[in-house]
Design a protein around this nucleic acid. Sequence first.
DNA 1: GCCAACGTTGGC
DNA 2: GCCAACGTTGGC
Length: 149
Amino acid sequence: MNYWLLKSEPNEYSIDDLAQDQETIWDGVRNYQARNFLREMQRSDLAFFYHSNVKPPAIVGLARVIETQVADPTQFDPESPYYDPKSTPDSPRWQTVKIAFVEKLKRITLPQLKEMFHPEELAVVKKGNRLSVMPVSSAVAQRILTYSN
DNA sequence: GCCAACGTTGGC
DNA sequence: GCCAACGTTGGC
């Protein structure tokens, strides 16, 4: 089983939104590196839910991957800001996953994460990192879970 | 609000 | 295929 980190701006979609919805399709990712990680995800993988673009940014919860290789529906929707006219239902360009709410965690802020981990251990503490989907090693994941329980 | 980092676009 | 210009992310 693998661990991941998913960034979201809470004014777009927060952990409370996920707690209310219980599950959601992680749509709107339009970065190839992030998509490649989404393609690697397997059912029952766990993802840390991270709030970005707020003060302070923080890990706030946990989600579980419940369905993989989901074609992002927004790529076919001309009304969506994520519409991709070059993508067809026969060969969708953007795959994602469906995730389910697991729990809210005791918040770990970015400054705290920087104290706990080196940039090589956890990409989200690296300066200038803009990737919205990234892997987390199980050693790092265990330390986060221990800290926030 | 600023701006560093970095991905994407498009002219050549 | 290079790279300058441009746009976006996201911490500060």
